[in-house]
Amino acid sequence: MRLSVWRAAQYALLLAAAAAIAFPFIWMVLTSLKPEGEIVRFPPALFPSDWTLDAYVQVWKRIPFLLFFKNSVVFACGVTLISLAFDSMAAYAFARLAFPGKHALFVLVLIALMIPVQVTMIPLFIMLNDWGWIDTYAALIVPRATNAFGIFMLRQFFVGLPKELDEAARIDGCSEFRLYWQIVLPLAKPAVASLAVFHLMYNWNDLLWPLIITNSQEMRTLPAGLALFMGQHVVEYGILTAGAAIATAPLVAAFLSAQKYFVQGVAFTGLKE
């Protein structure tokens, strides 16, 4: 009896939090289904009086959606995959290996987090400009091929894994790479999966970097494409909310598919004594 009351209370809490967090998105999706002329109105209404998919049709018609989508996929997935590999390698070294200067080097990694990107953007732009890299995928991806945040995050998780693990493996003559690839990485799957989602969404949504680094419509990403609907004086809210709903969908899918790894951590906890 007590247990089921507790259960009910848990669900009530979960639902309340979900409602509070999701409400703005419900508003966004419903707004995207209103005719443009109905969005700015008093008294405000949550539901459209006239349901329409026109905004979605307009998004499709007025920007080369597939091209922008492809660029977003190449950019965001490219950064995510490469960065996951490099971040986890560095994190492994910081968490599981002994070498001189480790602490100092790690502080240096933290420092990389502390300078706002807004100021390094221009020196970086000048440098890439000098190299003739502007307007290429390489310029979009390579500078982001590793990420101090990712190194820091994975290091924290790798440190938490039991020490006995690698000692045993090393005595068995296991190489460091195998130790990293076959033992440590699989054990940290929840952390790696969440970092993958973070990298993906950060780059997928980024507006300023792709805009600065590319100079042509052919290289533009989805957020830059949606920004075309945001005029200096006039914003087309319906189209913009429709575009945002479409642009967010792949990330929701990525999150849902990463979720199955999140829970997997539990299965391995038996290892830790």
Binding site: D130, L211, I212, N215
Partner: peptide, 25 residues
């Protein structure tokens, strides 16, 4: 003429730098 349209604020962030370093549109 190839036209590149981007929001004014990001355009104005890179235009002066591009022109000053010998490039730009």
């Amino acid at each position: 003429v190839t036209i590149d349209i981007s929001p004014w604020d990001s355009l104005l962030a890179k235009l002066p730098t591009s022109l000053a370093t010998g490039q730009g549109p």
